[in-house]
């Protein structure tokens, strides 16, 4: 089982250990957090020198975000090393296929839309098998979906370690699967509640607004008895922690564990 370290900032390189053979770097949730090309180049050199695989994370993006992504892709491309790019936006896949065919596209966990809300756990044991099957399965159970991805050179899909477990035995073995631990992504917004949160005058403003990267300064824990676990909000994304490996990992469906030492924002 390959183990990868997922970091969002160059300072987090301190988490690197010998057991990691791949490095994930970048942003999944906000185009303003796309790293600058210099940092991406440094990470690429770091990975290359140590014989590590490199996976670049990309978020969902507006047209402005696409423009910001291009010099980052160019910086990695210049390193002449094999690189995976995780896309969480079909437009980014379109960009990769047309302008950067040398990169290996990987479908990100935002486009893998399995249900992850913790409330499911309150009732999952009482649900009919059809519902459990839905919550534990995914779009890759559909052959046409797998063919769709493979036709577009996508042969890896990213998964969260959702509380209800994951069954992948009926999915196409030609598509590799990665499992993210311990932070499970639940939801994201562009109406970010960290943006402007230091300013009481912006208390009730809900919209796409300027920010000062307050997401790097604050973390919020949200507790409600109906949620089996605390929700963690950092910037424009919500997560929870699940550090218990799914029972189905023994099936051998996952070939890579992606370790997030911090919430990846």
């Amino acid at each position: 089982m390959e183990q990868a370290l997922y970091i969002t900032r160059i300072e987090q390189l301190e988490y690197m250990r010998d057991n990691f053979t791949r490095m994930y770097f970048g942003a999944e949730f906000c185009e303003r957090l796309i790293p600058n090309p210099d940092d991406v180049s440094r990470i690429a050199v770091f990975a290359c020198e140590r014989g590590l695989g490199l996976t670049l994370m990309t978020p969902y993006v507006t047209d402005a975000g696409l423009e910001r992504l291009v010099p980052v892709l160019d910086a990695v491309h210049a390193q002449s090393m094999p690189v995976e790019v995780v896309f969480n936006d079909w437009g980014v896949l379109h960009l990769l296929r047309h302008d950067y065919p040398g990169f290996v596209p990987v479908m990100g966990r935002l486009l893998n839309k399995t249900k992850r809300g913790p409330r499911i756990m309150n009732i999952i044991d009482q649900l009919p098998g059809t519902c459990r099957d839905y919550f534990e399965s995914c779009v890759l159970s559909v052959g046409a979906a797998c063919d769709f991805l493979k036709h577009r050179s996508v042969r890896r899909v990213e998964f969260d370690n959702q509380l209800q477990g994951i069954r992948l035995v009926t999915t196409d073995p030609e598509i590799a699967k990665s499992l993210y631990v311990p932070y499970v992504f639940v939801s994201t917004t562009r109406y970010c509640l960290s943006a402007g949160c230091d300013d009481p005058d912006r208390m009730d403003y809900v919209g796409v607004q300027d920010c000062s990267r307050e997401c790097r300064d604050y973390v919020f824990q949200l507790d409600n008895p109906v949620m089996r676990v605390p929700l963690l909000r950092r910037g424009n994304a919500v997560f929870y922690v699940n550090d218990r490996m799914p029972e189905t990992i023994a099936d051998g469906c996952f070939d890579r564990i992606v370790v997030q030492p911090e919430m990846p924002v």
Partner: peptide, 22 residues
């Protein structure tokens, strides 16, 4: 919607209206 619809993995309506938290 406060979250991006297509990226929100919460499941609403897990019970009837008589159980509001679900």
């Amino acid at each position: 919607c406060v979250n991006v619809d297509g990226f929100c993995t919460f499941q609403h309506g897990l019970a009837g209206r008589e159980i509001p938290p679900m």
